[in-house]
Protein backbone atom coordinates (compact mmCIF):
# COMPACT_ATOMS: atom_id res chain seq x y z
CA UNK A 1 0.00 0.00 0.00
CA UNK A 2 1.11 3.60 -0.64
CA UNK A 3 2.09 5.74 2.28
CA UNK A 4 0.10 8.96 2.63
CA UNK A 5 1.82 10.27 5.77
CA UNK A 6 5.37 9.53 6.84
CA UNK A 7 6.90 11.00 9.99
CA UNK A 8 10.57 10.26 10.63
CA UNK A 9 12.54 11.17 13.77
CA UNK A 10 10.40 14.23 14.44
CA UNK A 11 11.57 16.33 17.35
CA UNK A 12 10.28 19.54 18.85
CA UNK A 13 11.73 21.08 21.99
CA UNK A 14 9.65 23.50 24.05
CA UNK A 15 10.35 24.93 27.48
CA UNK A 16 10.06 21.87 29.72
CA UNK A 17 8.47 19.62 27.08
CA UNK A 18 9.79 17.68 24.15
CA UNK A 19 8.37 15.74 21.25
CA UNK A 20 11.15 13.22 21.20
CA UNK A 21 12.21 11.48 17.99
CA UNK A 22 8.80 10.22 16.90
CA UNK A 23 8.36 8.13 13.76
CA UNK A 24 5.31 6.45 12.26
CA UNK A 25 3.50 6.17 8.96
CA UNK A 26 -0.07 6.03 7.68
CA UNK A 27 -1.08 4.20 4.54
CA UNK A 28 -3.82 4.99 2.04
CA UNK A 29 -7.23 3.54 2.86
CA UNK A 30 -6.49 3.46 6.59
CA UNK A 31 -7.65 5.22 9.72
CA UNK A 32 -5.05 5.85 12.38
CA UNK A 33 -6.01 6.67 15.95
CA UNK A 34 -3.52 8.87 17.75
CA UNK A 35 -4.01 8.38 21.46
CA UNK A 36 -2.38 9.62 24.61
CA UNK A 37 -3.02 11.55 27.79
CA UNK A 38 -3.65 15.29 27.93
CA UNK A 39 -0.35 17.02 27.30
CA UNK A 40 1.23 13.94 25.74
CA UNK A 41 2.01 15.87 22.52
CA UNK A 42 -0.91 14.96 20.25
CA UNK A 43 -1.99 18.47 19.28
CA UNK A 44 1.62 19.64 18.93
CA UNK A 45 2.31 16.78 16.53
CA UNK A 46 -0.80 17.66 14.52
CA UNK A 47 0.23 21.32 14.40
CA UNK A 48 3.64 20.26 13.16
CA UNK A 49 1.97 18.27 10.38
CA UNK A 50 0.21 21.48 9.31
CA UNK A 51 3.45 23.47 9.75
CA UNK A 52 1.73 25.72 12.27
CA UNK A 53 4.44 24.76 14.75
CA UNK A 54 7.98 24.44 13.40
CA UNK A 55 9.77 21.19 14.02
CA UNK A 56 13.21 21.23 15.62
CA UNK A 57 14.39 18.29 13.54
CA UNK A 58 13.09 15.31 11.63
CA UNK A 59 11.10 14.89 8.46
CA UNK A 60 7.41 14.97 7.61
CA UNK A 61 6.24 13.74 4.23
CA UNK A 62 2.60 14.01 3.21
CA UNK A 63 1.48 12.56 -0.14
CA UNK A 64 5.20 11.84 -0.68
CA UNK A 65 6.06 15.56 -0.50
CA UNK A 66 8.02 17.53 2.07
CA UNK A 67 5.45 19.35 4.21
CA UNK A 68 7.28 22.69 4.26
CA UNK A 69 8.54 22.84 0.68
CA UNK A 70 5.09 21.94 -0.72
CA UNK A 71 2.94 23.40 2.05
CA UNK A 72 0.26 24.97 -0.15
CA UNK A 73 -0.38 21.99 -2.43
CA UNK A 74 -0.37 19.62 0.55
CA UNK A 75 -2.83 21.71 2.56
CA UNK A 76 -5.16 21.91 -0.42
CA UNK A 77 -5.56 18.15 -0.04
CA UNK A 78 -5.93 18.11 3.76
CA UNK A 79 -9.12 18.50 5.76
CA UNK A 80 -8.48 19.64 9.32
CA UNK A 81 -10.73 19.72 12.36
CA UNK A 82 -9.07 21.25 15.43
CA UNK A 83 -10.05 20.50 19.01
CA UNK A 84 -10.80 24.21 19.65
CA UNK A 85 -13.03 25.78 17.05
CA UNK A 86 -11.72 28.54 14.81
CA UNK A 87 -15.06 30.29 14.38
CA UNK A 88 -15.72 33.95 15.07
CA UNK A 89 -18.52 33.74 17.62
CA UNK A 90 -20.44 36.73 16.35
CA UNK A 91 -20.49 35.49 12.76
CA UNK A 92 -22.42 32.79 10.92
CA UNK A 93 -21.43 29.50 9.32
CA UNK A 94 -22.45 30.92 5.97
CA UNK A 95 -19.91 33.75 6.28
CA UNK A 96 -17.15 31.34 7.32
CA UNK A 97 -17.84 29.14 4.34
CA UNK A 98 -17.76 32.12 1.99
CA UNK A 99 -14.39 33.05 3.49
CA UNK A 100 -13.03 29.52 3.24
CA UNK A 101 -14.16 28.26 -0.11
CA UNK A 102 -12.20 30.83 -2.12
CA UNK A 103 -9.03 28.90 -1.20
CA UNK A 104 -10.11 25.52 -2.57
CA UNK A 105 -10.41 24.48 -6.21
CA UNK A 106 -12.40 21.37 -5.33
CA UNK A 107 -14.95 22.98 -3.00
CA UNK A 108 -18.30 21.19 -3.28
CA UNK A 109 -21.21 23.40 -2.19
CA UNK A 110 -23.77 20.64 -2.75
CA UNK A 111 -21.90 18.26 -0.44
CA UNK A 112 -21.49 20.97 2.19
CA UNK A 113 -25.19 21.88 2.15
CA UNK A 114 -26.18 18.22 2.24
CA UNK A 115 -24.01 17.68 5.33
CA UNK A 116 -25.43 20.82 6.98
CA UNK A 117 -28.98 19.64 6.30
CA UNK A 118 -28.22 16.16 7.57
CA UNK A 119 -26.59 17.49 10.76
CA UNK A 120 -29.19 20.25 11.22
CA UNK A 121 -26.63 23.07 11.06
CA UNK A 122 -28.38 26.41 10.47
CA UNK A 123 -26.22 28.41 8.06
CA UNK A 124 -27.41 31.85 9.09
CA UNK A 125 -27.49 31.33 12.86
CA UNK A 126 -24.82 33.05 14.97
CA UNK A 127 -21.96 30.73 15.93
CA UNK A 128 -22.30 31.65 19.64
CA UNK A 129 -25.70 29.95 19.54
CA UNK A 130 -24.11 26.68 18.36
CA UNK A 131 -23.37 23.91 20.84
CA UNK A 132 -19.88 22.38 20.95
CA UNK A 133 -21.15 19.38 19.03
CA UNK A 134 -22.64 21.63 16.32
CA UNK A 135 -19.35 23.47 15.97
CA UNK A 136 -17.46 20.20 15.58
CA UNK A 137 -19.96 19.01 12.95
CA UNK A 138 -19.67 22.35 11.14
CA UNK A 139 -15.87 22.09 11.06
CA UNK A 140 -16.12 18.51 9.85
CA UNK A 141 -18.57 19.53 7.10
CA UNK A 142 -16.12 22.25 6.00
CA UNK A 143 -13.22 19.81 6.11
CA UNK A 144 -15.10 17.29 3.96
CA UNK A 145 -16.54 19.81 1.49
CA UNK A 146 -13.25 20.56 -0.22
CA UNK A 147 -12.76 16.86 -0.96
CA UNK A 148 -9.49 16.22 0.86
CA UNK A 149 -7.35 13.11 0.53
CA UNK A 150 -6.22 13.19 4.14
CA UNK A 151 -8.36 14.12 7.12
CA UNK A 152 -6.53 15.29 10.22
CA UNK A 153 -8.84 15.47 13.20
CA UNK A 154 -7.96 16.59 16.70
CA UNK A 155 -10.41 14.94 19.09
CA UNK A 156 -13.34 15.24 16.70
CA UNK A 157 -15.81 13.17 18.69
CA UNK A 158 -15.17 14.78 22.08
CA UNK A 159 -18.22 17.04 22.19
CA UNK A 160 -20.63 14.87 20.23
CA UNK A 161 -23.65 12.95 21.47
CA UNK A 162 -23.58 9.15 20.90
CA UNK A 163 -25.77 9.27 17.76
CA UNK A 164 -23.68 12.02 16.16
CA UNK A 165 -20.51 10.15 17.12
CA UNK A 166 -21.67 7.06 15.30
CA UNK A 167 -22.62 9.23 12.30
CA UNK A 168 -19.17 10.81 12.25
CA UNK A 169 -17.44 7.45 12.58
CA UNK A 170 -19.54 6.09 9.68
CA UNK A 171 -18.54 9.09 7.57
CA UNK A 172 -14.87 8.49 8.36
CA UNK A 173 -15.21 4.83 7.42
CA UNK A 174 -16.91 5.78 4.13
CA UNK A 175 -14.27 8.43 3.52
CA UNK A 176 -11.45 5.89 3.36
CA UNK A 177 -13.52 3.21 1.61
CA UNK A 178 -12.13 3.92 -1.89
CA UNK A 179 -8.63 3.06 -0.65
CA UNK A 180 -7.10 6.33 -1.83
CA UNK A 181 -7.66 8.48 1.25
CA UNK A 182 -6.75 8.28 4.92
CA UNK A 183 -7.76 9.63 8.32
CA UNK A 184 -5.45 10.59 11.15
CA UNK A 185 -7.29 11.42 14.32
CA UNK A 186 -6.44 11.99 17.92
CA UNK A 187 -8.91 11.02 20.60
CA UNK A 188 -9.39 10.08 24.22
CA UNK A 189 -12.43 7.96 23.44
CA UNK A 190 -10.86 4.59 22.84
CA UNK A 191 -14.18 2.89 22.06
CA UNK A 192 -14.26 4.99 18.85
CA UNK A 193 -10.92 3.51 17.89
CA UNK A 194 -12.15 -0.02 18.57
CA UNK A 195 -14.94 0.67 16.07
CA UNK A 196 -13.04 2.15 13.17
CA UNK A 197 -9.26 2.43 13.55
CA UNK A 198 -6.95 0.28 11.44
CA UNK A 199 -3.81 1.54 13.15
CA UNK A 200 -3.12 2.92 16.56
CA UNK A 201 -0.26 5.16 17.61
CA UNK A 202 0.20 5.69 21.31
CA UNK A 203 2.08 8.78 22.45
CA UNK A 204 3.19 9.37 26.01
CA UNK A 205 5.25 12.31 27.31
CA UNK A 206 6.28 13.20 23.77
CA UNK A 207 7.43 9.73 22.82
CA UNK A 208 5.77 7.08 20.72
CA UNK A 209 5.11 4.11 22.97
CA UNK A 210 3.56 1.99 20.24
CA UNK A 211 2.44 2.29 16.63
CA UNK A 212 0.88 -0.81 15.15
CA UNK A 213 -2.12 -2.21 13.28
CA UNK A 214 -5.12 -2.95 15.52
CA UNK A 215 -4.90 -6.67 14.65
CA UNK A 216 -1.40 -6.83 16.06
CA UNK A 217 -2.52 -5.76 19.53
CA UNK A 218 -4.07 -9.19 19.98
CA UNK A 219 -1.01 -10.94 18.54
CA UNK A 220 1.52 -8.96 20.55
CA UNK A 221 -0.15 -8.30 23.92
CA UNK A 222 -2.26 -10.17 26.43
CA UNK A 223 -4.33 -9.08 29.38
CA UNK A 224 -3.76 -11.32 32.38
CA UNK A 225 -5.71 -11.49 35.62
CA UNK A 226 -5.72 -13.75 38.60
CA UNK A 227 -5.13 -14.09 42.30
CA UNK A 228 -2.30 -12.10 43.85
CA UNK A 229 -0.46 -15.38 44.72
CA UNK A 230 -0.08 -16.11 40.96
CA UNK A 231 1.97 -12.94 40.59
CA UNK A 232 4.92 -13.96 42.75
CA UNK A 233 8.22 -13.38 40.91
CA UNK A 234 6.46 -12.36 37.69
CA UNK A 235 5.77 -8.67 38.31
CA UNK A 236 8.80 -7.59 36.30
CA UNK A 237 7.36 -9.21 33.18
CA UNK A 238 4.35 -6.85 33.05
CA UNK A 239 4.19 -3.67 31.00
CA UNK A 240 1.53 -2.32 33.34
CA UNK A 241 -0.06 -3.80 36.41
CA UNK A 242 -2.90 -3.05 38.82
CA UNK A 243 -2.81 -4.89 42.09
CA UNK A 244 -5.52 -5.21 44.70
CA UNK A 245 -5.41 -7.04 48.03
CA UNK A 246 -6.41 -10.36 46.47
CA UNK A 247 -6.46 -9.89 42.69
CA UNK A 248 -4.37 -8.38 39.93
CA UNK A 249 -4.80 -7.44 36.29
CA UNK A 250 -2.04 -6.40 33.92
CA UNK A 251 -0.79 -6.10 30.38
CA UNK A 252 2.03 -8.37 29.27
CA UNK A 253 3.62 -9.51 26.01
CA UNK A 254 1.65 -12.50 24.71
CA UNK A 255 4.65 -14.84 24.48
CA UNK A 256 5.55 -14.10 28.10
CA UNK A 257 1.92 -14.55 29.17
CA UNK A 258 1.81 -17.97 27.55
CA UNK A 259 4.98 -19.01 29.38
CA UNK A 260 4.07 -17.65 32.81
CA UNK A 261 0.28 -17.97 33.13
CA UNK A 262 -2.48 -20.46 32.54
CA UNK A 263 -4.57 -20.19 29.35
CA UNK A 264 -7.75 -19.31 31.30
CA UNK A 265 -6.03 -16.27 32.85
CA UNK A 266 -5.15 -14.76 29.48
CA UNK A 267 -7.54 -12.42 27.66
CA UNK A 268 -7.46 -10.27 24.55
CA UNK A 269 -6.70 -6.64 25.40
CA UNK A 270 -8.52 -3.73 23.79
CA UNK A 271 -7.08 -0.28 22.96
CA UNK A 272 -8.09 1.10 26.33
CA UNK A 273 -6.15 -1.67 28.07
CA UNK A 274 -3.11 -0.88 25.96
CA UNK A 275 -3.43 2.84 26.67
CA UNK A 276 -4.09 2.50 30.38
CA UNK A 277 -1.52 -0.16 31.16
CA UNK A 278 1.42 1.13 29.13
CA UNK A 279 1.03 4.51 30.79
CA UNK A 280 -0.09 3.09 34.11
CA UNK A 281 3.05 0.98 34.23
CA UNK A 282 5.24 4.07 34.10
CA UNK A 283 3.09 5.97 36.54
CA UNK A 284 3.19 3.10 38.97
CA UNK A 285 7.00 3.09 38.90
CA UNK A 286 7.08 6.85 39.37
CA UNK A 287 4.61 6.83 42.24
CA UNK A 288 6.51 4.00 43.93
CA UNK A 289 9.73 5.98 43.59
CA UNK A 290 8.02 8.99 45.20
CA UNK A 291 6.67 6.85 48.06
CA UNK A 292 10.13 5.37 48.65
CA UNK A 293 11.69 8.80 48.74
CA UNK A 294 9.31 9.99 51.48
Amino acid sequence: MDTILQISHLTKAFNGFKIDDISFSLEKGCIMGFVGENGAGKTTTIKMLLNAVEKTSGEIQIFGLDHTAHEVEIKERIGYVPSDDYFTANSTLDRHVKALKIFYKEWDDTLFKALCTSWKLPLSQKIYEYSKGMKTKAMLAIALAHKPDLLILDEPTAGLDPVARIEVLDILRDFVANGERAVFFSTHITTDLDKIADYITLIHEGRIKESLPIDEIEEKYALVDGGIEDLKGKEEEFLGLRKGQVKFEGLILREKAQKCFKENQIRVPNIENLLVYTIWGEKDEKSQAIIKSL
Binding site: E71, V72, E76, P82, D84, F87, A89, A99
Partner: peptide, 19 residues
Protein backbone atom coordinates in the same frame (compact mmCIF):
# COMPACT_ATOMS: atom_id res chain seq x y z
CA UNK B 1 -10.81 36.11 23.96
CA UNK B 2 -8.57 33.25 22.94
CA UNK B 3 -6.08 33.47 25.81
CA UNK B 4 -3.12 34.34 23.66
CA UNK B 5 -4.17 32.53 20.52
CA UNK B 6 -5.46 34.38 17.54
CA UNK B 7 -8.64 32.79 16.18
CA UNK B 8 -7.63 34.02 12.75
CA UNK B 9 -4.37 32.08 13.04
CA UNK B 10 -6.38 28.98 14.01
CA UNK B 11 -8.59 29.59 11.00
CA UNK B 12 -5.65 30.16 8.67
CA UNK B 13 -3.78 27.09 9.93
CA UNK B 14 -5.91 24.74 7.85
CA UNK B 15 -5.90 26.84 4.67
CA UNK B 16 -3.62 26.21 1.69
CA UNK B 17 -1.48 29.20 2.59
CA UNK B 18 1.90 29.61 4.24
CA UNK B 19 2.73 31.57 7.36
Amino acid sequence: KNSGKSSFMNFAMQLPVTK
